[in-house]
Measured scan of single mutants.
Amino acid sequence: MEVRTIKVFTTVDNINLHTQVVDMSMTYGQQFGPTYLDGADVTKIKPHNSHEGKTFYVLPNDDTLRVEAFEYYHTTDPSFLGRYMSALNHTKKWKYPQVNGLTSIKWADNNCYLATALLTLQQIELKFNPPALQDAYYRARAGEAANFCALILAYCNKTVGELGDVRETMSYLFQHANLDSCKRVLNVVCKTCGQQQTTLKGVEAVMYMGTLSYEQFKKGVQIPCTCGKQATKYLVQQESPFVMMSAPPAQYELKHGTFTCASEYTGNYQCGHYKHITSKETLYCIDGALLTKSSEYKGPITDVFYKENSYTTTIK
């Protein structure tokens, strides 16, 4: 009895394709271990004539594949690729409408935090270190965002349907971005203890939790000093293409032309909904596939993004 075979390709990165001759009487799992086709788990399936010449994702289970996976995804987590594939199996079914010149995501599976993050990423200057993220990001900007969303979920250790947080998501993504040249110098002034300067680099240099107003941050924000008295913390120097200011959701007025974009969060910790506000020729609110415009805006804002380049204080 002759062994019926077909020729397929296996890959971990969709760049390096490895030619395989597979036995049609055995499952993919018996031949390769966990195997995925377009995100779908085909591990328990036997090869079919229609699979001839198709590319299958496999887990990096030998040295060659491990090197290829690390170079593309910059992670050695053995569960990463499987999590990416199972997320992709959902995100490829989502709709990605162009809204006001940006790629958004039609609401499904509690994905409003991903839509808000995706919209924000198209408006701030950011370059990702893992080629996987950078490639998928370019495709997302062009309207094909399924891979990018699935990668975000995998890097953030999230599953489809789980509630997510924009600030946490951005923080994970910033860790995989090139923020080497970003720098922030802060000064804390206390009447009792004097003053202390701190220099922050990388992710810490672009994120701040405690106030939404970048102007206020430049002037000074009140913080408790270690001595128990009130101290003032203010920005001395900022070198970065953008800054992200966050605070627990509270009524906040966004003035046209003073910011790049913002995240609105309605609801409580267990259950809520994100919308995205962007400042173009007027203010726009993007909620999944829905767009509304207004000249002014007041609502429960939790993150505001500002364009920056270089700032030095005039406070002496």
Rank of each mutant, 00 (worst) to 15 (best):
T211Y: 04
Q134W: 02
V99H: 14
Q98E: 11
R141G: 07
K183T: 13
L291G: 11
R4W: 11
T258F: 05
N16D: 15
C261W: 00
E2H: 08
V22A: 13
E215S: 08
L81H: 10
L59G: 07
K229H: 10
G257R: 05
V166M: 07
T313S: 14
Y172E: 07
I15A: 06
L81K: 06
Q175R: 13
Y113W: 15
V189Y: 07
Y155F: 00
L163Y: 15
L291D: 08
M85K: 02
E52K: 14
A247E: 07
Y72T: 07
E162A: 03
G143Q: 00
D180E: 11
H18C: 10
V221R: 03
S181R: 13
Y306M: 03
T278C: 11
K307Q: 03
T27H: 09
K229C: 05
I301R: 05
E281W: 07
D180N: 15
P241F: 00
L212I: 06
P97D: 15
G33K: 05
T302G: 01
A115I: 01
Q230A: 12
N178S: 09
P300Q: 12
T169W: 03
I223P: 01
T266C: 06
I315G: 15
Y73R: 03
D23L: 12
E215H: 05
W94H: 01
A250M: 14
L283E: 06
H48E: 15
G39A: 14
A87K: 11
V304N: 00
F70N: 11
H90D: 09
K307R: 14
Y73I: 01
H273A: 02
T199M: 11
Y234Q: 09
T43N: 04
L118N: 02
K280Q: 14
K7R: 14
K233M: 15
P47L: 06
Q251T: 15
A177G: 03
F217K: 01
L118W: 06
T19S: 13
A262F: 01
H18Y: 11
Y155P: 01
S86V: 12
H51C: 03
T10M: 11
A250F: 08
A136W: 05
T226G: 13
G299N: 06
N14M: 13
D62E: 14
C112F: 07
T232L: 12
A250T: 14
F80P: 03
Q195W: 09
F56K: 02
E2A: 12
K127Q: 15
A40R: 10
T258C: 05
Y208K: 04
I152W: 00
A146W: 09
R66A: 13
Y96P: 10
D63L: 08
E308H: 07
A87E: 12
L283N: 09
G202N: 00
L88R: 07
G288I: 04
V236T: 03
T312V: 11
T169C: 12
P60Y: 06
S294Y: 14
K95F: 10
P47Q: 05
P248T: 14
F128R: 04
F305S: 02
Q20R: 12
Q98W: 10
V160F: 03
T19E: 14
G143I: 05
Y137N: 03
Q123Y: 06
K233Y: 07
I105G: 04
K275L: 03
T120F: 05
M170I: 09
R66H: 11
Q216E: 13
D109Q: 12
E71A: 12
V203M: 10
G164A: 03
E162W: 00
M209A: 11
P130W: 03
E144N: 12
V22M: 10
D109L: 03
P47Y: 02
K316T: 13
N147R: 09
L118H: 00
I277F: 07
I152N: 00
K233P: 00
W94D: 06
L102I: 04
F32E: 04
Q251W: 12
D287K: 00
D77C: 11
T159R: 11
K275R: 15
N147A: 09
T10G: 06
E52W: 10
N309L: 13
N14C: 11
D109T: 08
C271G: 12
Y96R: 01
Q237W: 06
K275M: 12
G228F: 00
Y36V: 02
T199E: 11
C285L: 12
G272P: 06
T19A: 14
R83H: 06
G33M: 04
T282C: 09
T260H: 08
L235F: 00
Y73C: 00
S50W: 12
E162C: 03
L254D: 02
Q230E: 10
A145K: 03
N110T: 01
T260F: 06
T120S: 13
W94G: 05
H18T: 12
N187E: 13
N16W: 09
C227S: 02
K298D: 09
S246V: 00
T232W: 09
A146L: 03
A140T: 09
T302L: 02
G39L: 07
V189C: 13
N187Y: 02
Y73E: 05
K255F: 07
Y36G: 04
T192D: 14
G220T: 04
T260C: 11
N49R: 11
T232Y: 08
M24N: 13
T260M: 13
N100Q: 14
P78I: 03
Y138V: 14
S25G: 09
S240I: 02
H90I: 10
P241Y: 01
P78V: 09
K201V: 12
S240P: 00
C112S: 01
R139T: 10
T5R: 13
V58C: 10
S25I: 14
M24R: 13
Y155W: 01
T27I: 11
I223T: 12
C227P: 00
N111T: 06
G33V: 05
C112W: 00
A136R: 04
Q134V: 10
T35S: 13
I277D: 03
L254E: 05
A262Y: 00
W94C: 03
N61F: 11
D180H: 08
K191Y: 11
M85L: 12
L291W: 15
G288E: 00
G288A: 02
Y297P: 01
T282N: 08
E215P: 00
Y252R: 00
E68K: 07
D62R: 07
D180Y: 08
Q31Y: 14
G39C: 14
D62Y: 05
I15P: 09
G288Q: 00
K201D: 07
G143M: 05
A40F: 11
A145Q: 06
Q238P: 02
S86P: 05
Q31T: 13
T120D: 05
I124P: 07
W94M: 07
C149D: 02
G194P: 05
A132F: 02
T35K: 00
T103I: 12
T76G: 13
L153G: 08
S213R: 10
L121P: 04
T116K: 09
V304P: 02
H18V: 08
C190F: 01
G220M: 05
T10C: 12
G39V: 08
Q216D: 12
H176Y: 14
S310I: 12
V221H: 13
F305G: 02
F70W: 11
Q216A: 12
Y214E: 14
I15D: 12
L291E: 08
S181E: 14
K201A: 09
L283F: 13
S104Q: 12
D41M: 12
K275H: 06
D287L: 05
N147G: 09
K127C: 09
L65D: 12
I223K: 04
D135W: 08
K233R: 14
L200Q: 10
V236F: 03
A154E: 04
M24Y: 06
K280V: 09
T266I: 11
K280N: 09
M207K: 06
S171I: 13
R139M: 11
L283V: 10
C193A: 03
I286P: 05
E71I: 02
N89E: 14
S79E: 00
G272Q: 03
L283R: 01
N100I: 12
Y72C: 09
P241H: 05
Q123A: 05
P78H: 08
W107C: 01
H256F: 12
E68M: 06
I301N: 05
E264T: 09
E52Y: 11
M26K: 15
C156I: 06
G228Y: 04
R139G: 08
C225M: 01
P224L: 12
H48G: 11
Y113H: 04
T312D: 04
Y57A: 08
Q270K: 12
Q197W: 05
E2Y: 10
L37G: 08
E2D: 12
C190Y: 07
T278E: 06
F217W: 01
Q270I: 08
D62M: 05
Y72M: 11
A205V: 01
I6G: 07
Y28G: 07
Y284W: 11
C156W: 00
P47E: 05
Y57H: 14
A145V: 00
R83Y: 03
N129R: 14
M85R: 06
Q237I: 06
M209H: 15
D38M: 11
A132H: 03
K92A: 10
C227M: 02
T120A: 14
V206A: 01
Y297K: 10
S295M: 15
T199P: 04
